[in-house]
């Protein structure tokens, strides 16, 4: 025997609805994780298709690399970064990263949008012009 059913049952319905909201929200929608595209002209011409570090590291830590670069360039006036493999890279988002990854919409934005990350790179940097 339950008391105050007319308040408690709607309350429980709201509770269940709230808790299962993602199930309703996404039902019937096919979702696939975004595939980042690296088929830009510059990358295609590369003999060894390799970023400054390996793929997994770049996936997880590219934002920290960029943050460190910014601090070093802006505060220390150090513009050259030597990474593993003895290759020399310029610490520059616009001139180095975007040289290969010239496809911002397909490369940067896809994942950032997927996980609601809104980096403020382009508050200062000039966004590459892309053909839509």
């Amino acid at each position: 025997m339950m008391y105050d059913k007319k308040l408690i049952i709607p309350g429980l319905v709201i509770f269940v609805w709230l808790m299962t909201l993602p199930f309703w929200y996404n039902s019937g929608k096919a979702t696939a994780a975004p595939e980042v595209k690296i088929d830009t002209p510059v990358i295609q011409e590369m003999a060894e298709k390799k970023c400054i570090e390996d793929k997994q590291y770049m996936r997880e830590a590219h934002m920290q690399v960029l943050d460190d670069w910014r601090d070093e360039v802006v505060r220390e006036r150090k513009r050259v970064e030597v990474t593993t493999g003895g290759k020399t890279y310029e610490m520059s988002l616009q001139n180095e990263c975007m040289k290969c990854h010239s496809n911002k919409a397909e490369f940067c934005d896809k994942c950032h949008d997927y996980v609601a990350v809104d980096p403020y790179c382009w508050d200062c940097h000039i966004e590459p012009k892309e053909k839509k």
């Binding site: 993602p22 199930f23 929200y25 996404n26 039902s27 929608k29 096919a30 979702t31 994780a33 975004p34 997994q56 996936r59 997880e60 994942c111 997927y114 996980v115 990350v117």
Partner: peptide
């Protein structure tokens, strides 16, 4: 962490 992988997992649960 690979955030995209985490979302893939979480979206798998709710779909």
């Amino acid at each position: 962490i690979d955030v995209v992988g985490v979302k893939e997992l979480a979206m798998g649960w709710v779909t």
